[in-house]
Design a protein around this nucleic acid. Structure first.
Length: 624
DNA sequence: AAAAAAC
């Protein structure tokens, strides 16, 4: 049986007595004091975390058992009380928000929407769609697959979602008019406290889909958790992503969503001085966005504890669980005191979800709902995919031809197909993917020498160089970016009109992520791939993918594809037209199990799966 | 084999 958060809180009510007895001290450092600790009791604090620290665990402010209502009237240093109280007021929204004098965090919080006016001026030049960020016309008839128990129905408007007035205001500030398909389905599931595995193209509003429920959930638990003990902080939400830039991007978005809610979002990643991040953490954190390496560092330094984590989100989850990352993720999720699955809420998001990764991921999930939302515009209508046969030795000159052609078109990156020609981009960017870091440097150098202002991003560059490169590309100063796979996933770079797979990846899923850097948010884009004999293993899956996306498949590629030895499922995308499908469903067929019949045990898994939430070492998954 | 991710 799933343990709800509310249950956890009440179950640990016994701890209240303990904390009451503790001698309480004011923090000796200038540390974050969460709203519920500011001027009142710590005795409301409780949580799923047992008191391993014993003793004086709480370093909040004054003791005393003041009722929440009284506390709100209390001292002026109410940090962030406004937002949370309003949220605690629930769907009525804001009814209890007319409070608090003195300084308030809202007055100090940098307005993350601050520059948008200027940006909007610029954006006016691009397209009208830009304001909402999303071309909603492209969202008609999106295929959706959902499976699992008790799936909450999707919503059609943000108004139907009970997020509260402050979040609604942020939605308006973001200029979101109505929820995207992934948001329509995922947000109700997440708000219902269900674990979720979601397949959706990045750029379709994925970040908001997991951020809003997390922020909303934290706002509704205003007295839920301690926030720090000594120098250790206890985030309630943890969002992991595979690259530093993606973590930054999620952080930037989350700050907008959480503006004036009192929910504090902090980012931590490698390659940047840790001291600044530590200081930021000391000032308090509710949601931590991080890359795995730096997080492990912080955990080992005991500057962060995962004991209080209520919400865990993995972005680009299939990448996070592949060979390179899995041990680190397991360490973080299973060996660092994080509450068990079933106690915390776990949400996995990616555009692709290979079956074997789904199987792995089920270790982290409790009776999850599987959700797959088709690509914007149903499959890849918005991305024109071309594949060209180019010998290794001809690649540079061929790329040069493409770039010259774009330049002569008067607008770098004009799209090719007739029905797209009307689209005029004044600023169009070209993203060139290569296989190796060295290859990236050398191609960038060569392009620059030949009169094409370029820059490059890859793991051998310093973080400073990486961020500079990204800015320079986004601004159009260097409209060509040569990148390794570090830039393949999740990065939201507006106005990328053309993705060139100078070197094709070995995995079709990587190809999907790479071309997903264009054609974002309902806009159109072009993807060109250079194919030769060294890409034979990709011939078949590439041909299949292009076919599914109604792209022209050259005869020579079909030929290679038909000759390709069928190499099992490794390179096959599970489940047809979009993203993937629920591996439980597929595997149930072979095992003659009906996973979807419910069952009187209240367990749709026929007793095969431990959904009690406990992680029992030695107990293997039913699918192993 | 390569890429990413901590110092």
């Amino acid at each position: 049986m799933r343990t709800s958060w509310a249950d956890s809180v009440s179950n640990s009510a016994a701890e209240i007595a303990i904390s009451d007895k503790n001698s309480l001290r004011r923090p000796t450092r200038s540390t974050y004091v969460p709203p519920h600790l500011r001027s009142g009791s710590i005795s409301d604090l409780s949580g799923p975390v047992s008191g391993t620290n014993g003793g004086s665990r709480w370093t909040g402010s004054d003791g005393g058992g003041t009722k929440p209502e009284l506390r709100r009237q209390g001292q002026g240093n109410s940090y962030a009380t406004a937002g949370r109280d309003a949220a605690a007021g629930g769907g009525g929204g804001g009814g209890r928000n007319n409070r608090s004098g003195g300084w308030d965090r809202r007055e100090r919080e940098v307005n993350p929407f601050g520059n948008d006016d200027k940006i909007d001026d610029i954006k006016q030049n691009f397209s009208e769609q830009e304001n909402s960020g999303i071309n909603f016309d492209a969202y008609e008839d999106i295929p959706v697959e959902v499976s699992g128990e008790n799936v909450p129905p999707p919503v059609n408007t943000f108004a139907e979602i009970d997020l509260g007035e402050i979040l609604n205001q942020n939605i308006r500030r973001c200029k979101y008019v109505k929820p995207t398909p992934i948001q329509r389905h995922a947000i109700p599931i997440a708000l219902a406290g269900k674990d979720l595995m979601a397949c959706a193209q990045t750029g379709s509003g994925k970040t908001a889909a997991f951020c809003f429920p997390i922020i909303s959930g934290i706002m509704r638990e205003p007295y839920a958790q301690r926030s720090h003990v000594g120098r250790t902080v206890y985030p309630l939400g943890l969002i992991l992503s595979p690259t530093r830039e993606l973590s930054c991007q999620i952080h930037d978005e989350a700050k907008k969503f959480s503006y004036q809610t009192g929910v504090k979002v902090v980012v931590a990643y490698g390659g940047a001085p840790i001291n600044q991040q530590l200081r930021e953490l000391e000032r308090g954190v509710d949601i931590l966005v991080a890359t795995p390496g730096r997080l492990v560092d912080l955990l080992e330094r005991a500057r962060v504890s995962l004991q209080a984590v209520r919400y865990l989100a993995l972005d680009e989850a299939d990448r996070m669980l592949d060979m390179g990352f899995e041990p680190q993720i397991r360490k973080i999720v299973e060996q660092m005191n994080m509450p068990n699955r079933g106690v915390r809420q776990t949400m996995l998001f990616s555009a692709t979800f290979p079956r074997e990764i789904q199987r792995l991921a089920s270790d982290f999930l409790s009776n999850h709902i599987f959700l797959a939302v088709g690509r914007v515009g149903s499959s890849t209508d918005l991305i024109v995919q071309r594949v060209e046969y180019v010998l290794e030795s001809d690649k540079r000159s061929h790329l040069m031809d493409l770039l010259h052609a774009q330049r002569e078109n008067g607008n770098h990156g004009k799209v090719i197909r007739d029905y797209l020609v009307s689209l005029t981009l004044q600023l169009a960017l070209t993203l060139v993917f290569v296989e190796t870091k060295k290859g990236a440097d050398s191609l960038e150098h060569w392009l620059c020498m030949n009169g094409f202002p370029s820059t490059t991003i890859h793991g051998d560059r310093t973080q400073q160089e990486r961020e500079l490169a990204l800015r320079s590309f986004k601004s159009g100063k260097t409209p060509i970016l040569v990148a390794t796979d570090v830039a393949a996933r999740g990065l939201d770079i507006p106005h990328v009109a053309h993705v060139v797979n100078f070197d094709l990846p070995n995995d079709i899923d990587d190809y999907v992520h790479r071309i997903g850097r264009t054609g974002r948010a309902g806009k159109t884009g072009l993807a060109t791939a250079f194919f030769n004999e060294s890409n034979l293993s990709l011939a078949r899956p590439l041909a299949e993918l292009m076919q599914e996306a109604s792209q022209e498949v050259p005869a020579w590629l079909t030929h290679y594809a038909s000759r390709a030895r069928y190499g099992g499922n490794k390179n096959r995308r599970s489940g047809g037209r979009f993203g993937g499908s629920d591996f439980r469903r597929e595997e149930s067929i072979g095992k003659n199990l009906d996973y979807y019949s419910g069952g009187n045990s209240g367990n749709a898994y026929g007793g095969l799966v431990d959904i009690s939430g406990g992680y029992a070492p030695g107990v293997t998954s039913a699918w192993d």
